[in-house]
Design a protein around this nucleic acid. Sequence first.
DNA 1: TAATGTAATGTAAGCGTTTACATTCTGCAA
DNA 2: TTGCAGAATGTAAACGCTTACATTACATTA
Lengths: 343, 343
Amino acid sequence: MSTNIIEIAKRAGVSIATVSRALNNNGPVREETRQKILQISRDLNYKPNPIARGLSRKRTDTIGVILPELVDEFFMDIIRGIDEEAYRANKYVLVSSSHSQRDVIETFLEFMVSGRVDGVILMIPHLHEEAAELIRKSKHPLVMLNVGRENKDVVSFNIDNYQGAYAITRHLIEHQNERIAMIKGYPGNCDAEGRLMGYRDALDHSGIALDEDLVVQGDFTVRSGYDGFRQLMSRNKKPDAIFAANDMMALGIYEAARISGIRIPDDISVAGFDDIFLSRLLLPRLTTVHAPIQELGIRAIQYLFKIIDGEVDPKTPHREELSTSLIIGGSCGCPHQSGHNLF
Amino acid sequence: MSTNIIEIAKRAGVSIATVSRALNNNGPVREETRQKILQISRDLNYKPNPIARGLSRKRTDTIGVILPELVDEFFMDIIRGIDEEAYRANKYVLVSSSHSQRDVIETFLEFMVSGRVDGVILMIPHLHEEAAELIRKSKHPLVMLNVGRENKDVVSFNIDNYQGAYAITRHLIEHQNERIAMIKGYPGNCDAEGRLMGYRDALDHSGIALDEDLVVQGDFTVRSGYDGFRQLMSRNKKPDAIFAANDMMALGIYEAARISGIRIPDDISVAGFDDIFLSRLLLPRLTTVHAPIQELGIRAIQYLFKIIDGEVDPKTPHREELSTSLIIGGSCGCPHQSGHNLF
DNA sequence: TAATGTAATGTAAGCGTTTACATTCTGCAA
DNA sequence: TTGCAGAATGTAAACGCTTACATTACATTA
C-alpha cells in the first residue's frame, strides 16, 4: 500500500495514538505536536486507510444504492441526487443494479450483513413477500424508494403517484374529454398501481364511469406504448384522450399516432408521467407530470444519514411523498406553447 | 455487526483457520468438516466481513469509477457497461462524479492511495498537466477513458472520434455539400479535438478548403448548438451542412432551425455524434455517428481486471480505439427512413 | 512396530486503524 | 518541596479476517 500511521509516528517521534488523535482532532494533543504531525502527513501525502479505519470504527462511510436498472434517465437522476449529497457529506456511493429479481436480495444481504456499507437505499418496484420479510427483519439503516403504500413499516420516500395521476386525469377531463383511456403499468409495480388509482379516482370523482375496455396493459417501455395505442384504436368506441403511465409509453403513442396519421392533440389528447427530458422534444410537447426524481434521491440519502448518525430512530417507520406538478405541453389540447423549453 | 468467523468456528468445534479455509476453498479441509462448516454458516446466514478481509488480503473487490458528470445518457451507458461486468466478476463499483476540476485529483488520490479500491476507471475530458503528472506517477491499476492521443504512457480505451468524424464529414460531402460547417467543442477536450481533426482532414482530403468562418465554438450543450446555428446562419455565406460535435448540440440546431423556419434536410443538412437515444426521436431522424459507449465501459473494466490480477503489466501503456459506425437518418438528405427505430 | 509423508487442523502474527486505560509531564496550590 | 489535577502521550487490545508456520492425526511402508 503506502504510507501508514506508523511511518508518520516514527518521523514525528510520537506514538501512533498521538498521530491518530492529531489527525482526527479528537483527544488532546499539544498544538506544536499537532502541527508537526499534520505537516509530515501532508509531506508524505498520507491518507488514512479507510479499510482499516472501517474495521475499527465499524463505519465505512459508504452507502449502497440498489436500483432495478441503471438504464433510464429516471435512475440516473436518482443517482445524481444521491451522489451530490454524498459528496457533500464526504461519503462514498456503491451502486448496483439488481441484475435479476433473485439477486436483489443477494446484493442487499451482501451489503447489509457484511458491513460493506453503513446503510442502503433500495428501490424494488415489485416487492414480493420474501424480500419484504427480509427487509422488515433487517436492523440496518435502510431507506426505500417508491414502495407501495401498504408497506407501512419501513422508511420510504416516494413520488406521489396518486396525486400526480389524479391531477393530470382531471386536466384531461377539463378538456371536455369523456372517454379517457389509460395505458397502465404492471400490476404489483407500486408506481403503476398508484398512478392507476389516481386515474380511477379522478374519473370517479368527476362522475365518469370507468370503461374497463379503455384500460390496457403496458410495461413502461416505448414498445408497449406503441402497442397499447394500436390496441385502443381498434376498439369500436375509441378514446378521445390517453393517459400513459409513463413518458416512455407516451413516446410510443406518438410514434404509433404518427404512423397511423392520427394527430395529437387534434384527433386525440395524450398525457404522460415523469417529465423526462425526452418529453420536451416531442411535437407538440408532451403534457405530463413532473416527478422530482433528483430530489427524491437527495431526500432519501439525507434521511439515511440521519438514521446512521442516530438522529432518528431506525425502527420508526417514516413515509414521505414528494408532490408532483403538472407540466402543460400541447398534447392535451392546451394552446400550443410558443416554443420548446430545452434549456 | 453480526455473525463472525469465530462464532462459526465455535459451533463447528474447529479453529477459525479451518473455517476460513473451508469457506474460501483453499487449503485442505476434510470433506465432512467442510460440509459442517458450510451448513452452519448457511444456517447463520454468515457473510464474511469484506472490510476485515480487505485489510488482510489487501484487496477490496471494489473498483472506483470517476466520471466528469453523472448527468448524461453518455455516462449512464458507461456505468451500465461497467456495472454489468463488475457484477459478473463479483466486484463492486464505487462511483463518483468529479464535482469540480480541482476535485478529480482529490477523489482520485483518495481512491488510489488509501486503498479504498483495487483500481480506478477515470475519465477526465480535459486533462491538465498537474493531473497528468499525478496519473503517470501512480503505481495503481488505472484505466482511462477517452484521453487524447498525446497521452501515450497510460492505459486507455477510447471512442475513435477521428474516424467517426472523418466518416460522417465524408458522408456530408458525398451529398454534394460544399460549405460544411462545424460546431465544435472546447479546445482541450480530447473528444472535441479528435472530432474536429477528423472533420478537417475529411475536408482536406476531398480538396475542400476549410473556411474558418464555418467553424464555431460550442460546449456540447443543447444551448450552444442553438446559438451556434444562429451564428452560422448570420454569416453572409451560409453553410449548406452542419456537423455538430455531439448530438445534444445537433438537438439545439433542430430547435433553432424549427424556430427560424429552416427545414432539415431541405434547406440544410445536419449531422451529429454519439447516437444517443434522443437522436432517434428527431424528425427527420438525426444522421449521426454511433459511439459504442457501453462497450467502452465493458472493455475498460475487463482490462482493469487483468491489470489487477497481474495478467498484464500495469506499466505497459496500452491504447485501444473502439471504432464507430455511421447511423444514417434523414437529416443529411438521404432518402427518408420509412419510420423511426425506437424499439 | 517404528519411521515417514501427507492431510487435517491449530496457533498466532499480521493488516492499519481507533480507543480504553496507563503512564508521564506540567504547572500550581498548599 | 510535595502533592495533585489535568493535559499530553504511550501501550496494547480490539476490529474480523487471512495465512505462514507449527502441530497433530492418520495411513503407508520398511
